[in-house]
Structure formats: C-alpha cells, structure tokens
C-alpha cells in the first residue's frame, strides 16, 4: 500500500499494489493527469498504478470509481480535518482573548 497525502487538504490517496492489475483506467481517466505507471512490478507481474503528482489532485474520485479491482481509493481523513478545525477554532479563540 502506498499512501499519499494532499499537502493542503490533508486527505489521503491510497494505491494497493497487491490488488492492482495495471489496467490503466485510473491513469487514463484522471482529469489532472496525476497518476502514472510505476517502474516496479507487483507479485502477480503487473505494472501497477502509482500516484505521481498528488499536489494536482482535485479529489474527483474518478480513479476510485473507475477501478474494477478496488485497488485505489481516497480516505477523507475526517479525523485530521476535525482536529484542524478544532485547532483553528482554538487559535481564533486565543486571538480573540
């Protein structure tokens, strides 16, 4: 499993090389051209898809939904989001005080 985190929005995109069959659908249908084939092969001999430019990702879910093998998905990272919201609130409160 390879995990990438969006630098600003903090959500994760995970590619599972044990499931990937290298069909290239996620790569072809990514509107921002974020994904590409890896140079490595997985256990079953497929060239798997890898996230290459996470900064460009717009979280459109196109990769997750086009994947027939449940090998690529987005984790919303709600916990971190909540924590950050709390942090922001705290800092704002501190500023007010």
């Amino acid at each position: 499993m390879e995990v990438h985190q969006h630098p600003e929005k903090k959500y994760y995109l995970i590619t599972d090389e044990s499931r990937c069959k290298g069909c290239g659908l996620c790569i072809a249908f990514c509107p921002k051209n974020c994904l590409g084939f890896s140079d490595e092969y997985n256990d079953k001999g497929w060239r798997v898809a890898k996230m290459q430019r996470m900064r460009d990702c717009i979280k459109c879910y196109m990769c997750e939904r086009s994947c027939p093998d449940f090998a690529i998905f987005i984790d919303e990272n709600e916990q971190t989001e909540k924590e950050e919201l709390l942090k922001e609130e705290k800092t704002q409160e501190e500023k007010k005080n």
Partner: peptide, 18 residues
C-alpha cells in the same frame, strides 16, 4: 477472494462497486 478473476480493466468490477 480479491483480487478478482476478471481481466485487467473489466467492467464487472466497476459494476460491483457501483
């Protein structure tokens, strides 16, 4: 049972997900 028996890129996996 995953990975499935389907060929790479098969539409059945996508339909299962749908």
């Amino acid at each position: 049972a995953i990975p499935t028996i389907y060929c790479p890129g098969c539409g059945i996996g996508t339909t299962i997900q749908a």
